[in-house]
């Protein structure tokens, strides 16, 4: 195998109650590359990330990180894997009992035993990278706007300079200019810092900017996976419809059926 697969999912199935959410996801990301996952609302994008992080346990399949199987590993080994990952949650998921900078510094202090002062400095630096000034660092997350919370979540995800970073809709809820700053930041994470990233987005402009590869998920399966440059000639009617945001095509949304 010539390519170096940092993350590899094979035939991953996940069901909630009687509802099949993932029906055999096959996906991989090469080391220091950026994968963008697109797909309709409720198609299983966030669940896929949670499976990789081990927050959700698939019934079936294999998830390898650095070539090592991670399904069914001990919690000690899981912590080891997680300490190399960062995650921006779709809803930011900031700890509301902590200050903004404490949120950003959390992984450094708890997970990596960095001294509090040093972690605070790093937190301020990361906040600056997402366009947030020091004046908000001592506020509590509830005092921030939705877009600001999202950026704090982003700063928290990248604070420990993890090898692997997941961004669940990083630019949703941001204005176009700020969205572009965040896009640049994600590109930097990959190109400068050398992280491997998976980004979920609905925003095709953002996808084109940050992706090396693009994968489209539909009804719990990856229906297209290829180079970002090829997305316009994918040959897949689903992808075509999605990137043009058209209501005509194979993807039937509930509102169209109604």
């Amino acid at each position: 195998m010539s390519e170096d697969r940092h993350i590899e999912l094979t035939d991953v199935h996940k069901r909630f109650g009687t509802k099949n959410v993932l029906n055999g996801v096959n996906l991989h990301v090469e080391r220091q590359k950026s994968l963008v996952v697109i797909g309709g609302s409720g198609s299983g994008k966030s669940v896929t990330l949670k499976c990789i992080l081990g927050l959700v346990t698939p019934e079936q399949g294999s998830i390898k990180i650095n070539g090592q199987e991670t399904l069914g590993i001990s919690s000690g080994a899981r912590d080891e894997v997680l300490s190399k990952m960062g995650m921006l949650f779709q809803g930011a998921a900031l700890f509301d009992s902590l200050l903004v900078w404490e949120n950003v510094a959390f992984g450094l202090i708890q997970g990596h035993n960095v001294a509090r002062d040093k972690a605070k400095d790093i937190a301020f630096e990361k906040l600056a990278q997402v366009g947030l000034g020091s004046e908000i660092a001592e506020l509590s997350p509830a005092e921030l706007s939705g877009g600001m919370q999202k950026r704090v979540g982003l700063a928290r995800a990248i604070a420990t300079d993890p090898e692997i970073i997941f961004f669940d809709e990083p630019t949703t809820g941001l204005d176009p200019i700020m969205g572009d700053i965040i896009n640049d930041l994600i590109v930097d994470c990959v190109k400068q810092v050398g992280a491997t990233t998976i980004t979920i987005t609905h925003d095709m402009a953002s996808a084109r900017k940050i992706a090396d590869k693009i994968a489209m998920i539909y009804e719990g399966e990856i229906i297209w996976h290829g180079d970002a440059a090829d997305v316009d000639e994918s040959g897949s009617a689903h992808v075509e419809q999605f990137i043009h945001g058209s209501d005509e095509g194979p993807i039937q949304t509930e509102s169209v059926i109604l």
Binding site: D79, S83, A93, L94, G111
Partner: peptide
């Protein structure tokens, strides 16, 4: 509240039990 807003998941991803 921490569970439904995914803060508990976030704790786990920050390698904190």
């Amino acid at each position: 509240t921490m569970r439904v807003t995914e803060q508990i998941d976030a704790l786990t991803t920050l390698a904190t039990n």
